[in-house]
């Protein structure tokens, strides 16, 4: 008997993985650290993109909903441009395009734009904002007239009504759409690897590049993305259940 059967078993698995198995899974597992790093980057970038996107999108959506002069058509143009062009190109503009100007590199902006990570975050936030504007506007449009009239009858100011009644009502309605948008942004986030950021796909490409592999890294990335989507869908379903509780039939 061998003194250490576990070690023998591991060695056998490694040999099997390197020679007979269709994919060298031991190689992938032994690089779990870059995939973990990639996962953290992807999740952080998507979260930042979504939340900063929401911060930009909300005031724009309100302007568009209220048909504020000047602002509303400007927001319309913003939405048209950023929804009508690929996010990859937008990210390139922010990363390579802006960096070619001396005045950008000499300005305070450069502190942020110098970092590929933040360039990604900005691209994601702006792109997501363009989609979120339309979602929030849809939500605002769907607020029943009666609710708005009630706030006027109560003598609420416009801001107070927005804050207390209209926005909460609209945002709740938007939740499923925001859930969808978060999945789309996760899909889009895979372009981060084009800007030298090691996200999930970037980790896969790094692994492939290091060992001149064809697809092992991409396969690992695919599995991780599926896992992420599964977790996000779970969370969204739960959040929706909680916030929509008042609309559910009484059991």
């Amino acid at each position: 008997m061998s003194p250490d059967p576990i070690a023998d078993l591991l060695a056998a698995i490694t040999v099997f993985s390197e020679t007979s198995a269709p994919i060298d899974f031991v190689l992938i597992l032994s690089h779990w650290d870059i995939f973990l790093r990639g996962m953290l980057n992807t999740v952080a970038l998507v979260l930042i993109g979504l939340s900063f996107g929401a911060l930009i999108a909300l005031p724009m959506a309100i302007a568009r909903w209220q048909r504020t002069p000047v602002a509303a058509p400007l927001v319309g143009a913003f939405v048209y441009v950023f929804r009508g062009t690929p996010m990859l190109v937008q990210a390139y503009v922010i990363y390579y395009g802006l960096a070619q100007f001396d005045w950008v590199r000499d300005s305070v902006l450069w502190v942020v734009l110098k970092e590929p990570w933040w360039c990604c975050a900005i691209a994601f936030a702006i792109n997501s904002a363009a989609y979120q504007v339309e979602i929030y506007r849809g939500g605002l449009d769907a607020v029943p007239r009666g609710e708005i009239e009630a706030t006027i009858a109560m003598g609420m100011t416009r801001t107070l009504a927005l804050r207390r009644i209209i926005l909460p009502s609209a945002l709740r309605r938007c939740l499923p759409m925001i859930g969808n948008e978060s999945l789309f942004l996760l899909h889009g986030s895979a372009i981060a690897s084009m800007l030298t950021v090691i996200d999930v796909l970037g980790a896969g490409r790094k692994l492939n590049a290091q060992y001149y592999l064809a697809y092992e890294g991409f396969l690992a990335a695919t599995v991780i993305y599926m896992l992420l989507v599964w977790v996000i869908t779970r969370i969204l379903a739960r959040v929706e259940r909680i916030t929509m509780r008042h609309l559910q039939p009484i059991a």
């Binding site: 999945l183 996760l186 899909h187 889009g188 986030s189 895979a190 372009i191 690897s193 999930v200 796909l201 896969g204 490409r205 492939n208 064809a214 697809y215 991409f218 396969l219 990335a221 695919t222 993305y225 599926m226 989507v229 599964w230």
Partner: peptide, 21 residues
Amino acid sequence: TFVRSVPDLCMMLLLFFGGQT
């Protein structure tokens, strides 16, 4: 479900490099 779970770029690279093999 699969399409909703995997980014387009990732799927494209997988197919381009892995699909052929």
